[in-house]
Amino acid sequence: KSSGQLMAEWGLDDVDYLFSEEDYHTLTNYKAFSQFLRPLIAKKNPKIPMSKMMTVLGAKWREFSANNP
């Protein structure tokens, strides 16, 4: 499932962030990516359980990696 599908299924607000060329150069591993995106997700979904946060971050990382030029 996509991150958007997961968040909709769980009734969470998705984070629409348009990644720049620079993001693809600086966010080169999962740790850097999650440190960048986790606060954005948490801000829109302050009560998100950690298990769902990790699942969403994993899905967003897969999508980000697939779109990386």
Rank of each mutant, 00 (worst) to 15 (best):
K1F: 03
S2W: 00
S2T: 12
S2D: 10
S3M: 05
S3Q: 06
S3V: 05
S3I: 06
G4C: 15
G4V: 13
G4N: 15
Q5P: 01
Q5H: 12
L6P: 05
L6F: 06
L6R: 05
L6T: 04
M7G: 01
M7L: 12
M7Y: 01
M7D: 02
A8C: 10
A8E: 14
A8Q: 13
E9I: 06
E9W: 03
E9C: 06
E9H: 10
E9M: 14
W10E: 08
W10C: 05
W10S: 08
W10F: 15
W10N: 12
W10I: 07
G11Q: 09
G11E: 08
G11S: 08
G11R: 08
L12K: 00
L12F: 14
L12Q: 03
L12A: 10
L12W: 08
D13L: 15
D14L: 02
D14F: 01
V15E: 07
V15D: 06
V15T: 11
V15G: 03
D16C: 02
Y17F: 04
Y17I: 10
Y17W: 05
L18F: 10
L18V: 15
L18P: 09
L18G: 08
S20V: 11
S20F: 03
E21L: 08
E21W: 07
E21V: 07
E21S: 11
E21C: 02
E21G: 09
E21T: 07
E22Q: 13
E22P: 07
D23K: 01
D23R: 00
D23H: 11
Y24T: 06
Y24F: 11
Y24L: 08
H25R: 14
H25A: 15
H25W: 11
H25E: 13
H25N: 12
T26A: 06
L27M: 08
L27A: 01
L27Y: 09
T28P: 07
T28Q: 09
T28V: 09
Y30S: 04
Y30G: 02
Y30H: 04
Y30D: 05
Y30C: 02
K31E: 15
K31N: 11
A32Q: 13
A32C: 09
F33P: 00
F33Y: 08
S34L: 05
S34R: 11
Q35V: 10
Q35S: 10
L37V: 14
L37C: 02
P39I: 01
A42F: 14
K43R: 07
K44A: 13
K44L: 12
K44D: 03
N45Q: 03
N45L: 04
P46G: 06
P46Q: 04
P46L: 03
M50V: 03
M54D: 06
T55L: 12
T55S: 08
V56I: 12
L57Q: 01
L57K: 00
L57H: 00
K60M: 12
R62G: 13
E63R: 01
A66F: 09
A66G: 12
N67F: 05
N68D: 09
P69A: 07
